[in-house]
Design a protein around this nucleic acid. Structure first.
Lengths: 350, 350
DNA sequence: TGCCGATGAACAAACGATTGCGCTAGCCTA
DNA sequence: TAGGCTAGCGCAATCGTTTGTTCATCGGCA
């Protein structure tokens, strides 16, 4: 058992409160230099560390953040988490990680447990458009930030990308390349990213002056496996697409795998665009054309938003939306000119 | 602010302790059914959740585990973490994640902060062979488990693979293929995996009846970048190797990248073997031959070891070592026969 | 000498829960 | 009618900190 204030007090022949003030460097503290140095020596000697639990109880602050995501083995969320921790650690916060596997039930139970633990703030990257647990969060008015996906009317503090624009740019790229039958491996319509990127896909068609074939939109979810399944359906169509925009890189990679199995050449027989620009995107072969978003920053900005709320003790409604950039690789054009990524990321905040 | 026992007690006209007993379903509790149902109604109505901080203070248990790793964006550690959480969550534990980036200093400060927080147990996958912070851990005698890497004489509870054997099998595979100049992109000799896999590399040479060329061993660390740097040195040698055993898959992938850049064909000009069989290994092209280890199980077994210590309140010295299996893919042989992975993982425990 | 203002440190009340023990009625029995 | 048993709760200590307040002592000054 680590040493307590009371024990130290006994050894130094002073009251525990005195030790506490010395340890915390209480500014308005008047104390005899002899006593002070005696206590300081004792502190050093024992390596005293205040009991965080007791302190948390008294101070009503745990210095713990929580990150709720679908699955940390997805590189997107791993990078996101690093962003959070890199911003939180210097400010003295530790971070709890909760995986939901996309199950609302697990999200609910995690959030409940986090609330019981009295974590100081929660970052959620697994929210749905209509999400009861986000509503609970809103009511409890403990600090929280939504990342990547938003919920409902979008009145929550949020960090993410402009998914509508992103979907549009990705699709427009394919149309610009001459493709007239562009498929979409869509996200779930119950998730903001799925809904918006799909809407962007449609908008790009409208802008190009022709309608998208509804048969070419297949809901794929967000895992690689769901990507392969959906791609199989899409590519088995009587009149299959010559290009496809996938809602995420993982889905795109799954689709590429299926295309390969079906003997399709990429990009000659099938061009593919993903979304997020995860590290893996540049490493697969052929390199994956995708929409770049600053994943690590998603996390660090969200953490800062959260920490500012905690420190100022007033809720925020800030919404930060990054503008995604098209990165062209070999999955859409052969012998790629290097990426077209613009020099500096653009941000819009409200 | 969430509701407290005292408030509920006031509303139900009973003492807080009575509420507590009802909420906790105290077995030996004698209570009038009228009172009980009145309280239970109140509990449901308010959705009372005991304050975890206060409870933690009283019970001397936080129900929090911590995982300390170099970097969660490395797929190996992401899978490991999932193993931990999947085992911990059902038993009511949340998990803190701490990234050290391989810096002893950050590891120290993380462990210190975890100790102050009074987490119930720590899982470390970032330990060094001589590691002061592991020694601190040993002294404090709070429950902990080392994963993947062990430390010192290896007297700590541990879960990992038989790295000596793994290094030997990986290297023997290359020698069996006829390679006589086999390089090694080694881990740090300050880390158990680095030391043992290197020793296995040497043992395989000895078993084959010839000595390894010391020039062909280059220390590479554990990241992809360090892998590319080391591979560049190794492949620029006057008399470069025709095959290489890399200490991890990430390093192997870095090496493959370099080989490609240098115009070497894999496996014809350079055969490569990695270690760990991360998901990425089967997705890169050519597929990476590697030593399979049950990463997810590393995490879940470690968590179980930890939780058992916590619940039984007595330290363990158990050491679980899994036997690695060679998975042959295209990075060592062309037109690969499917993987040679044995049906069931083998384990040795002490 | 007597009073006042610093100075240095102790006191005690929280924070919110858990738990061994004690206390009060009511009923039964002798 | 007194004594005892038991059901049904309340009491209070405790976990380890933090922090506003009080208290004692001492020197200085009139």
């Amino acid at each position: 058992m680590p040493v307590t204030l009371k024990e130290l007090a006994a050894r130094a022949n002073v009251h525990p409160s005195t030790i506490s003030r010395v340890a915390n460097n209480d500014p308005g503290l008047r104390i005899a230099t002899a006593t002070r140095s005696r206590i300081e020596a004792l502190l050093r000697e024992t390596g005293y560390q205040p009991n965080g639990i007791a302190r948390g109880l008294k101070m009503r602050q745990t210095n713990v953040l929580a990150v709720v995501i679908p699955d940390i083995t997805n590189p997107f969320f791993a990078a996101l988490f690093r962003g959070v921790e890199d911003a939180a650690a210097p400010r003295g916060f530790n971070v709890l990680l909760c995986n939901t596997d996309g199950l609302p039930e697990r999200q609910r139970s995690h959030l409940q447990s986090l609330q019981a633990r009295r974590v100081d703030g929660v970052i959620i990257a697994s929210s749905f458009l209509k999400d009861p647990s986000v509503r609970d969060l809103r009511r409890q008015k403990g600090p929280y930030v939504l990342v990547n996906r938003f919920s409902d009317e979008g009145e929550d503090p949020f960090v993410g990308s402009d998914d509508l624009l992103g979907g549009q740019l990705a699709t427009a790229h394919l149309i610009d390349l001459g493709h007239t039958r562009v498929g979409h491996l869509a996200g779930k319509s119950t998730v903001s990213t799925g809904m918006l990127r799909r809407r962007g896909y449609l908008a790009a068609h409208a802008a190009a002056g022709f309608a998208a074939d509804p048969d070419l939109i297949v809901e794929a979810g967000y895992t690689e496996e769901s990507g392969t399944a959906a791609a199989r359906r899409l590519l088995s169509l009587p009149d299959p697409p010559t290009a496809v925009f996938a809602v995420t890189d993982m889905v795109a990679i799954g689709a590429a795998e299926v295309a390969r199995q079906m003997g399709l050449r990429i990009p000659e027989d099938l061009a593919i665009v993903g979304y997020n620009d995860i590290p893996l995107a540049s490493r697969v072969s052929p390199g994956l054309t995708t929409m770049h978003v600053p994943i690590h920053e998603f996390g660090s900005v969200a953490a800062r938003l959260l920490l500012d709320q905690i420190e100022s003790d007033e809720p925020t409604r800030r919404r930060v939306r990054f503008t995604p950039d098209l990165i062209v690789r070999e999955s859409t054009v052969t012998g790629t000119a290097k990426s077209q990524r613009s020099a500096r990321p653009r941000v819009s905040a409200e």
